[in-house]
Amino acid sequence: MHSKVALVTGASSGIGEATALKLLAQGYTVYAAARRVERMRSQADAGVHVLAMDVTDDAVMRAGIEEIIAKSGRLDVLVNNAGYGAYGAIEDVPLDEARAQFDVNVFGAVRLIQLALPHMRAQRSGTIVNITSMGGKIHTPMGAWYHGTKFALEAISDCLRMEVEPFGIDVVVIEPGGIKTEWAGIAAENLLKVSGTGSYAPQASAMAKLMINEANGNRQSPPQLIAETIAKAVNAARPKTRYAVGFGARPMILMRRLLSDRAFDSLMRMAARMPRSAQRRSCGAAS
């Protein structure tokens, strides 16, 4: 029997790298895709097939899928992990940057799904794993465009799940909480560049400090926890539709479900220790 074949995007570090190595250890033929392939030598040495791929380049994505089919003859698992967080006040973030965030986090994932589905339908089997975030269920200050992409991918996954179920294809959403990767530090740095001066500076400074403190703290979960969850999902006969995993994911999603909009807003402001001057002072506001 041939081993199952998996494609993991955003695999040069963090969750993507951990997932590629985990699936490899479980006997999968793994193709790991990223822009920074120079960082993937250890994966290649371990037996992972490394692909140079920019998920905003249609020709490159098409060539990558074609290479996988030509070499391995099938594609059983697609893990859409490529993504980044561009934080900043809505007023400050240029629309070109907002579009770029959607191009990577949403349209890149959807295009790979479109390219993979004909092969999965022909097999009458397959699993599509979309990495969203607890940020696809909650909101934080300065994160509108990032959260917008994750909310969008959650909704797309729900629609896709119903469409492909008749073909024996599963769609799984992974909602990581706080994970110890480069993500938070990069997002905080970008936030300060975009909104670190001007009207939104107090909020931006507070939020960036929270992100950096969380990134440098000991409470963040390791990326291997997400990799193990993905492996569990793709090997299950009937996987869950969603897995909320990692530091803070389940309690934060639960609180968002239970609290009113304004109550959750207040919780987020307190968590970020927003300065009073950056908060609206109102009494008795309705939810």
Rank of each mutant, 00 (worst) to 15 (best):
K4M: 03
I15G: 01
E17P: 00
T19E: 06
A20I: 01
L23F: 00
L23G: 00
L24W: 02
L24G: 01
Y31V: 01
A33Y: 06
A34K: 10
M40F: 06
D45W: 00
A46W: 08
L51V: 11
M53K: 02
D58N: 02
D58R: 10
D58A: 13
M61N: 12
M61Y: 07
A63L: 03
I65C: 05
E66S: 11
E66W: 04
E67N: 02
S72T: 06
L75S: 04
Y84G: 08
A86F: 07
I90P: 00
V93W: 08
D96Q: 11
D96S: 13
A100T: 09
F102A: 03
V106D: 04
V110W: 13
M120P: 06
G126I: 08
G135H: 03
P141S: 04
W145E: 04
W145V: 15
W145Y: 15
Y146V: 08
Y146G: 03
G148W: 11
K150D: 04
F151D: 04
I156L: 14
P166C: 02
G168I: 07
V171G: 04
I179A: 08
W183V: 09
G185V: 01
A188L: 03
Y200A: 11
Y200V: 08
A201S: 12
A204G: 06
S205V: 12
A206V: 05
R219F: 13
R219N: 14
A236C: 02
K240E: 12
M252S: 15
I253A: 10
R256Y: 08
R273T: 11
A278C: 07
R280P: 01
A286G: 04
